[in-house]
Amino acid sequence: MAAYVGLGGNLGDTAVKIRQALQKLDSADTHVVRISSIYETAPLANKDQPSYLNAVAEVRTTLTPQQLFGRLVSIENSLGRARNGRWESRTIDLDLLMHGDQIFESPGLIVPHPQMHLRTFVLKGMCEIAAELRHPTTGRTMQELADRLNGHDFWLDPDRPQLISVAGVIGVGKTTLATKLADKLGCGVLREAYDTNPYLPAACKGDREAALKSQLYFLESRYEQLNADTLPSGKVVLSDYVFAKDSLFAERTLDADQLNEYNTRHAQVERAISEPVLTIYLKDTPARILERVQQRSRPYESSINENSIAELGGDYDEMFADWAHSPLITLDAAQFNCMQNDHVSELASEIRCYICER
């Protein structure tokens, strides 16, 4: 059986410890086949410690997941591993990442590793030696999972709000998707305040004073919905927008003086906003989006055309190119149809890998 082991540490000569661990692992019943490069990575939660060295190894083994895990613990102990806490420094850390395509859970072991898909320092090594290998739970390749992280590392944290934000240009289908996902996940939906914003119609007609009032109205409504007091720890909820897009629209609609006023309030609000644990970016062609916008016949959307949709889509692409707030799942409406129940069900199953449900 092919299995994959993550190796790392940040105390002493970690590179030597990794080599020693691999030598001890290579045996009659577990043969080391391939080893990734060793990467230097920043610590996760506890930043006040040295950087880590990490690598991934592929092994061929006749051991069961429990037996291989026991072997890894034994090797850690033989190399002086002290178990002082989850986020503390360690001489050597050996994680059983995958064991074939098995999905296994016991009180002391979960396979595949429940957070490997959140760690660039793991997926980078996996991509080096098995980029097209599929994760048994998500069904995605190692490369697909790595691309969602954009070079960053995340972790499941039950003590923060479990906010899932659905993003995309106007008319792409965010609210429909968020509503259907919430039904699958058994949670609520936070919707943009389009219908209650009294300044929006005038702003869409070019009223400059209304433009600022409209933008501030959206900002305040988002603050009310997304601040940490509103979203208690462990609560799973979807929003049909991502907070970061608020500035994107302000820069497009406000003049310099208005933007300064807006930015002052935005800086005050931003500090209290809960970051999403997962962001879903829904994309479609400008022509298809315009068709949906025209079908719903909202008066304040009458000036929208394909060019404006394409320009806004470019802004979203640019924003998400440097996305560091959460893992990012990008959906192309040409392959993903939020009106098809099986598509939504599969996505909901994937989402469960990125949240802590209580």
Results as ranks from 00 to 15, higher is better:
Asn77Ser: 14
Lys205Leu: 13
Ala228Pro: 00
Asn341Gln: 14
Phe249Lys: 04
Pro158Ala: 02
Arg34Ser: 12
Tyr39Arg: 01
Val277His: 09
Ser74Gly: 10
Tyr39Ile: 01
Arg271Thr: 09
Met1Glu: 12
Gln66Trp: 02
Leu145Cys: 09
Gly70Asn: 14
Gly108Tyr: 09
Val16Thr: 14
Glu291Gln: 15
Glu40Lys: 13
Gly70His: 08
Lys235Phe: 10
Val122Trp: 08
Ala203Cys: 06
Pro286Asn: 12
Phe249His: 07
Ala267Tyr: 02
Ala202Pro: 11
Trp87Ile: 01
Leu238Trp: 01
Ala57Asp: 06
Val122Glu: 10
Val111Met: 06
Arg208Glu: 14
Lys24Cys: 04
Gly206Val: 08
Ala272Met: 03
Pro158Phe: 01
Gln115Trp: 02
Lys245Trp: 03
Gly168Phe: 11
Gln225Lys: 11
Ala167Trp: 04
Cys338Thr: 04
Ser51Gln: 12
Met319Phe: 11
Ala21Gln: 06
Ser274Asp: 07
Gly6Ser: 15
Gly12Arg: 07
Ala321Pro: 02
Trp155Met: 08
Ile273Leu: 01
Tyr4Lys: 03
Ala228Tyr: 13
Gln335Ser: 15
Lys174Cys: 03
His117Val: 07
Gly206Asp: 12
Gly85Glu: 10
Thr176Val: 11
Ala3Lys: 09
Tyr52Asn: 05
Tyr223Val: 00
Arg83Gln: 11
Tyr354Leu: 01
Leu190Met: 07
